[in-house]
Design a protein around this nucleic acid. Structure first.
Lengths: 356, 356
DNA sequence: ATGAAAGCGCTAACAG
DNA sequence: CTGTTAGCGCTTTCAT
């Protein structure tokens, strides 16, 4: 099985071609030569099998088999301007609220022949710019952002790059491009009203140091005020902010802090189920009965939440749906089709369980 | 700021060049023209700033600034045979035992200018082959595997590709290439001996449906037998296998199952902290005192484990170290240096807490 | 220190 | 259906 290079066509005096070949990898050319067809025909046999005759298809496939040829998608991407790479940016992968989305994204993209590049921005925006440059440099067929891109520079660069963008996990009237999210303010209001219906009268919040949590809490606080769920005279709901990412320990500390200053609270809204688990744990340690003395509601409806004791009430965000929808949007765009309704609110629901 | 294409050099009659340019993206050529240098000089200004004169450096930088040029790393990778992409394969990202490694990997690679591609193989090996092809096709500068590659075909393909490989999370005398792991059998023995020292006499296991867990448990069982930690007459430690990924619910079910058949057990070794949390939860629900009646030990030392009530004893695996070491190995190789000791056992430790 | 030429491995465009 | 040609945007090699 020889794989000598074809000598260059004689354009005037044959210059000795400098060979830059390094690895032992086969190229499409090798396969084509083995199958006795032009490289482009081999390419078509692999990419659009319907467009070549069965005989050729078979020969090419045999050659691929024989050589163990794996197409170089970098080269293909450069030529076709489709990298089949999709970038996703999450603040952090620990903390797990985004895991469901990442999982679903990876799966949906893989099924369509795309690969996910994962980037972590951290909760501070400092690294976001460098990350953006690293991403754009790879010319992905799409970028999926967690949350709305706030940095004006970032928005401009993304826009200028022409890469399809899906912002997720939030809503905005001015998306960069596409959007799959839900309304944090509505969640705040819904949770306040829910706790009100459950007869709670002195609510509080514990949340990560996160812009979206702050907005949820503001809406929650306003609604709670309106519904009279604060100590008389207070102008806002007591809240405790813990450093991101949200952890069980953070939840425990949060509750301790909260109780020290407001010993009479009877409900806590946590910005993640992990925090809520911390609250449950601390409550148990302090012999505070849940839900009797203290109602606890989390956010994320993580896989463990329903199996806790007491089972945790949680605001469910369908991360799987966000992931699959975002993937679909990107793939549609990449295949040249346009997305009919590229801004969608997937909503949320309150999964009521024993903790409230 | 014009960006008309340079007309092709007159090689005989000028053929009208078909323009394939699509986006409005600037290329290195545009930047070079603006800075009045050859493209290669602009390239050097960006990649090896020390190799060009300060005057030129400044002109090129100004041109980059002005255009918002972002180098196309796909093209760069094709030409230089360095994609600056690294692929990582994990069974699943939920279940969180691997999260710490993925997090550390992403960070360490990003710091070195590499981007992580994430792939999920699932626990069944069916998708692994397709995934491997998708990965190799992108010509990453390295592949990081969770666990040992078992499929002979997979090993051969990886080997043939010439891509540096780091297998992690396990040890083997016959790694494909590099290795950062620890010994699951040793963990089993260490846990058995630890529980023995703590005076336990009837131990059991709950684990995910995972090959490495099975090996840990076998070693655990053998050691426990040797130490007399089973019911008289029994030839192995009772165990319950729950479907992967390991969840809190799985842990609860596991304990229930176990207690039904072996009501007298006084210690459980769980294959992940999430399972252990389930055991803690179920024990609490059934009014079983931990650690008095039942000792619980997990694996992974997840971020929540130390803050549980009771705090969970756990086998700590330093996922951050695995990630950073694997990243270092890959980067060293990619930069052409050779890795001195490319097989390393990072060990483990038992973090003793209240649950035992 | 700078540049010209060639080519990485593939596919788009056009022609038959 | 198959092939020819000309790039994609960059970096290597070699020459100055």
């Amino acid at each position: 099985m020889e794989k000598k290079r074809i000598t260059p066509p004689d354009i005037g005096p044959a210059l000795a071609p400098r060979n830059r070949r390094k690895g032992s990898g086969f190229t499409l050319r090798d396969v084509a030569k083995l199958a006795n067809v032009a490289p482009i025909t081999a390419s078509r046999a692999l990419n659009t099998p319907g467009a070549v005759s069965p005989a050729i298809l078979q020969r090419v496939r045999a050659a691929v088999e024989q050589t163990g040829y794996v197409p170089n998608l970098l080269a293909g991407g450069l030529a076709s301007k489709r990298s089949r790479l999709v970038a996703a940016v999450v603040p952090t992968i620990t903390g797990s609220v985004f895991l469901e989305m990442v999982q679903s994204l990876t799966g949906a993209l893989a099924a369509a022949g795309y690969q996910l590049m994962l980037g972590q921005s951290g909760y501070e925006n400092s690294r976001e710019d460098a990350l953006l440059e690293a991403i754009i440099g790879r010319r992905p067929d799409g970028v999926i952002l967690t949350g709305i891109m706030r940095s004006e520079l970032g928005r401009r660069r993304l826009l200028a790059s022409g890469i399809p963008v899906v912002e997720t996990w939030d809503l905005t009237p001015t998306p960069i491009d596409m959007l799959v999210g839900f309304c944090h303010e509505k969640i705040g209001v819904a949770v306040a009203e829910y706790l009100h219906r459950r007869g709670r009268g002195k609510v509080a919040t514990i949340s990560g140091n996160d812009e979206r949590a702050v907005r949820r809490n503001r809406a929650f606080s306003d609604a709670a005020l309106r519904l009279g769920m604060v100590e008389s005279g207070a102008h806002e709901v007591p809240g405790c902010i813990v450093p991101a990412p949200t952890t069980l320990g953070g939840g425990r500390n949060g509750l301790r802090e909260l109780l020290r200053q407001h010993p009479t609270i009877d409900a806590v809204f946590c910005s993640s189920d992990m925090l809520a688990l911390g609250v449950l744990t601390e409550a148990h340690a302090q012999n505070i009965a849940v839900p009797k003395q203290l109602a606890v509601i989390g956010l994320g409806d993580l896989s463990f939440s329903g199996d806790l004791n007491p089972a945790l009430t949680s605001v469910r965000i369908d991360g799987t749906l966000i992931g699959s929808t975002a993937a679909r949007f990107i793939v549609e765009r990449a295949e040249g089709r346009s997305v009919s309704n590229p801004v969608c609110d997937i909503g949320f629901s309150i999964i009521e369980r024993a903790s409230t």
